[in-house]
Design a binder for these strands. Sequence first.
DNA 1: CCGATGACCATCT
DNA 2: AAGATGGCCATCG
Length: 111
Amino acid sequence: MKRSGENYFDLVYEVVKLIPKGRVSTYGAIANYLGIKSGARMVGYAMNAAHGLPEVPAHRVVNRLGILTGKHHFSSPEMMQNLLENEGVSVEKDQIVGFEQLFWDPSTALL
DNA sequence: CCGATGACCATCT
DNA sequence: AAGATGGCCATCG
């Protein structure tokens, strides 16, 4: 059942789905936008449960340093980087190149 | 049914 | 300066 609407997890999924192609966001930014307590913790948990949702581009979500923290959760550790590069995002040593430029903040983008 | 676990970040020592 | 800890929701065994 993906019909909840009251749990934080679905809220996170909605925001992650809204991340434009070729852009990346962070756990903290999403948590901040949703006003989640405990900050990025919940977002991290949410992404962990996002495994059945193909509409959730988890590869566009990285930590605040622009590092691919959850790369190990994909089909292959290289899959996350591969997907990012496929969208035109350069990744070097598990870190987003030009992260500041590619950073997509929901509270700013969704004015 | 209950216990354990998980993709983070900030602060304290 | 680096390691340890706190916060807290949902899912899995």
